[in-house]
């Protein structure tokens, strides 16, 4: 692993802290020992070639995938597992896992809006049924959030009536409605037509300015360069390089990052 030049959040203050994370799917070793800490307010972009394990990393953070080895801490508490005396671990109760997931927002590549519900019901669903928020409060909150992502006029539309960009903005509002401490973005613009990417990135920039803690897997290098405090470059299941954006994009330290960036710029001029 590369040396850390950039200041790392101290373990105590970190919102998310990942220690030696491994994930195997049968014979496939997708994550091979990931260590990462995310401090409050920090924006981290994870980049790398496809198949490098970026999405799996995010899915392990909120336990949508069960890590094969290693630990994830949310606010100092181990996520998904309970350590027993003697070093053995067992799966935490479902209720505990859900409580912790509720504090971590997630935005998916394919939006995953609930297709049988209107936009506003997508947003109020989890606050009402998971957090027990009163209906009126949830709807007021939802309308505020939908206004924030610029979709006040689509409150009662169904997801299938919206463009991809609009759907992704609803998904961001849905994540925000739980008032999460961090939001995980799993390639939020990869499924969008090019002309719709901008509106989603704009909402994300807005969130970043507001101080939201964000862990973003993305191929949008411009966004990463603008917004990220740190760039994590992953390849073959390991973090190859971890640098501030100005370092990463101007003079990457690793050979593989250099090749990766060269390939990108040859494909589409930045």
């Amino acid at each position: 692993m590369a040396d850390t030049v950039y200041r790392r959040a101290s373990p105590k203050s970190a919102i998310i802290s990942i220690e030696n994370l491994h994930k195997r799917f049968g014979p496939l070793h997708v994550l091979r020992g990931i260590n990462l800490e995310v401090a409050p307010g920090e924006k981290i972009c994870v980049v790398g070639p496809s198949g490098s394990g970026k999405s799996t990393l995010l899915r392990c953070v909120n336990f949508l995938e069960e890590p094969s080895d290693g630990r994830v801490f949310l606010d100092g508490r181990p996520m998904g597992f309970i350590e027993e005396p003697g070093g053995r671990r067992r799966r935490d109760s479902e209720a505990n896992i859900n409580r912790m997931r509720a504090r971590v927002g997630m935005v998916f590549q394919n939006f995953n809006l609930w297709t049988h519900m209107t936009v506003v019901r997508n947003v109020v669903e989890a606050p009402i049924y998971v957090k027990g928020l009163a209906r009126e409060k949830a709807y007021t909150l939802a309308e505020k959030l939908l206004a924030r992502v610029g979709l006040s006029d689509k409150v009662h539309a169904y997801p299938s009536q919206l463009s991809g960009g609009q759907q992704q903005r609803v998904a961001i509002a849905r994540a925000l409605a739980m008032e999460p401490e961090i939001i995980l973005f799993d390639e939020p613009t990869s499924a969008l037509d090019p002309e719709l990417v901008g509106e989603v990135l704009e909402v994300m920039r807005d969130l970043a300015r507001d101080g939201m803690t964000m862990l973003v897997v993305t191929h949008e290098m411009g966004f990463a360069a603008d917004v990220a405090d740190r760039i994590i470059f992953m390849d073959h299941g390991v973090i190859v390089e971890e640098s501030p954006p100005e370092v990463f994009f101007q003079r990457p330290k690793s050979e593989r990052a250099t090749q990766f960036l060269a390939k990108l710029s040859s494909r589409a001029p930045v």
Partner: peptide, 26 residues
């Protein structure tokens, strides 16, 4: 689709709640 339940779990829904609110209606 798997993504529908992923989104439910990511929002902190329990299996039962995700079944009742998301999977059964769909």
């Amino acid at each position: 689709p798997r993504g529908q339940t992923d989104a439910a779990h990511a929002a902190g829904m329990s299996h039962v709640l995700a079944m009742r609110r998301i999977v059964f209606p769909q």
